[in-house]
């Protein structure tokens, strides 16, 4: 298999000891197995996320994303920018589309970038890691390196919002995207395709500023997973992961529930299926331990016939 190379935009939360650091750990492990070379964009910056709007206004937000594009064009020419974070991807995609569509916005962006000694030539592609997996490698390719099928695991695929809307993954519907379920099945686990809360909003950044309203959303997301007898929830979004996992204890306090549902990343499932040890799959990075996934990860791999 030819080595695939990408300009990696990991985003703030996945940095060492960040709230999604175990996402990055598992992505690294997964990419190593799949022979994908991810080179971080040198000195990449925050995208401003969806919540910075009142401070940023329009142009400053695009300029932040365009700086990353310009750095990628300069240092990693010809490589697509690949984000693992839903908000990074959304913000970057939005900026790319807006700049492609407006010569005025492009000129203004470059006027600002000049202050940092940079110029954006509009040559980069912007993609999510999930797109790389599905489009560049494909489900068959993703199945090849499996040494430990995730047999017996029941998984609620929680796609959430920003990996799904407004851009989404090509060929998928906004109301019922299937890629995460297909990925789960590819890995040998059971996808709970009737899980109703697949694309429900967890509150996003408003989990901080409107905790009660957001926790009501999270409660629905977790309770539906219980209704479908899920062993764990899996998601492609770092904020979904954090919100849905860490606020369960708060919800229990507030509502007298006993929620204790693990929430993992798709990349962790893949790393485990590819034979990664718990630490390499980032399984030590959970507030609610994904025990059944850990059990598979510690199992000794039978030698291939």
């Amino acid at each position: 298999m030819a080595k695939k190379e990408y300009a990696f935009y990991p985003g703030c939360s996945s940095q060492l000891r960040g709230s999604a650091s175990n996402y990055l750990t598992s992505v690294n492990s997964m990419c190593q197995t799949l022979d994908i070379k991810m080179t971080q964009i040198p000195d990449w910056n925050c995208c401003g996320a969806s919540i910075g709007y009142a401070g940023s206004g329009e142009l400053a937000r695009h300029v932040m994303n365009a700086r990353n594009f310009a750095l990628a064009e300069t240092h990693l020419p010809g490589q697509d920018v690949v984000a693992t974070c839903a908000a990074c991807w959304l913000g970057a995609r939005e900026t790319k589309d807006k700049l492609d569509a407006s010569s005025q916005l492009m000129a203004e962006t470059n006027e600002a970038l000049k202050e940092a000694g940079l110029h954006y030539k509009a040559q980069v592609g912007v993609r999510h890691m999930v797109e790389v997996l599905i489009e560049d490698i494909g489900y068959e390719g993703l199945a090849q390196p499996i040494v430990k099928p995730l047999e017996g695991l029941k998984i609620a695929g929680y796609v959430g919002c920003q990996t799904n809307r407004p851009f989404g993954i090509a060929g998928e519907s906004f109301e019922n995207p299937m890629y995460l379920d297909k990925l789960v099945e590819t890995l040998g686990a059971e996808a709970l395709t009737k899980y109703e809360q697949k694309v429900t909003c967890c509150g996003g950044a408003l989990a901080f500023s409107e905790p009660e309203k957001s926790q009501k959303q999270i409660k629905d997301i977790v309770e539906s997973a219980y209704d479908h007898k899920a062993d764990l929830i899996v998601t492609p979004c770092p904020l979904c992961q954090a919100n849905v996992e860490i606020y369960q204890s708060e919800i229990n306090k507030r509502h007298g529930t006993k929620l204790d549902m693990p929430v993992a990343y798709y990349s962790q499932l893949m790393a485990v299926a590819y034979g990664a040890k718990p630490k390499a799959a980032g399984l030590d990075g959970h507030v609610i331990a994904p025990k059944k996934l850990q059990d598979i990860a510690v199992k000794v791999v039978p030698a291939k016939k």
């Binding site: 925050c46 401003g48 709007y53 009142a54 932040m64 408003l206 409107e210």
Partner: peptide, 19 residues
């Protein structure tokens, strides 16, 4: 609260370039 949070986020992430 979200107005304050939004401003705080932008201030935080632009101070050093990363959150």
């Amino acid at each position: 609260p979200t107005r304050q949070w939004s401003l705080q986020f932008w201030d935080n992430c632009t101070r050093t370039g990363r959150v």
